Amino acid sequence: MPGARRVVVVGYPAAEALDIACVVSTLKIANYVRGTTEYRAELVSLGGAPIHTATGLTVHADAALERVTGPLDTLIVSGGLGYVGAMEDQQLVAHVRRLARESRRVASVCTGAGILAAAGLLDGRRAATHWDHAEYLAKRFPTVEFDPVPIFVVDGSLCTSAGVTAALDLCLSFVESDVGPDVARAVARQLVTYMQRPGNQAQMSVFTSATPRHSVVQQAVEYIETHLGQELTPALVARHVGVSERHLTRLFTRDLTVSPARFIRRRRASAAARLLSETNLTQDAIAARVGFRTVETMRQAFQQFYGVSPSHFQSTQRSTQRP
Rank of each mutant, 00 (worst) to 15 (best):
T320E: 03
R98G: 11
C159A: 13
K139D: 13
L158N: 06
H133L: 14
R185H: 07
T316M: 12
R67C: 06
V33P: 03
L281W: 07
E231M: 11
V24T: 13
A127F: 02
A4I: 05
R293C: 00
T111R: 03
L236W: 03
D62N: 15
A128G: 07
A30E: 01
R34Q: 08
I76E: 08
M204L: 15
R318A: 15
R318P: 05
A273Q: 07
G199N: 09
L276E: 06
V187S: 03
A186W: 09
D284S: 13
G35I: 13
G56V: 08
S108H: 04
T279Q: 04
A118P: 11
F141T: 02
S173D: 13
L275Y: 09
T282E: 10
R197Q: 07
L81P: 03
Q304H: 08
A184D: 02
G47K: 05
P260F: 02
E176L: 05
G180Q: 07
D89S: 09
L121G: 03
V68A: 01
V308A: 00
F174D: 00
L121P: 02
A162P: 08
T69S: 12
A41C: 10
P50R: 12
T111F: 11
V7M: 08
L251S: 05
G180W: 02
V308G: 01
A119W: 07
I20F: 03
K139L: 13
C22Q: 11
A134P: 08
R239C: 02
T74W: 10
A271C: 12
R189M: 05
Q203I: 04
S270V: 01
Y306H: 03
E222M: 04
M87W: 07
G307P: 04
S259T: 15
D284H: 12
A15G: 08
I20T: 05
E176N: 11
T160S: 14
I51S: 07
L251C: 01
G79D: 05
S205E: 09
S157Y: 10
F252L: 04
F252Y: 10
P50V: 09
G242E: 11
L27V: 04
H133R: 14
T165K: 04
L158W: 12
V44W: 04
E176W: 02
F252R: 03
R67G: 12
T253Q: 15
E135A: 11
E222G: 12
V241N: 02
K28W: 13
A17S: 14
A17Q: 14
R239L: 10
G79W: 04
E222A: 15
E176R: 14
P142S: 14
V183I: 09
V9Y: 09
G80A: 07
V149G: 00
A30N: 03
A17D: 15
H240W: 09
T53A: 04
A269N: 04
A238E: 03
A167H: 00
V106P: 07
A184H: 01
I51R: 06
P148M: 09
V23D: 11
A113M: 11
D89M: 08
Q304I: 00
A238T: 08
R126K: 15
C171E: 07
T316I: 15
Y306G: 01
A285E: 15
F252M: 05
E66T: 02
E135W: 06
D19H: 09
T160A: 12
S161A: 14
A220V: 04
Q203N: 15
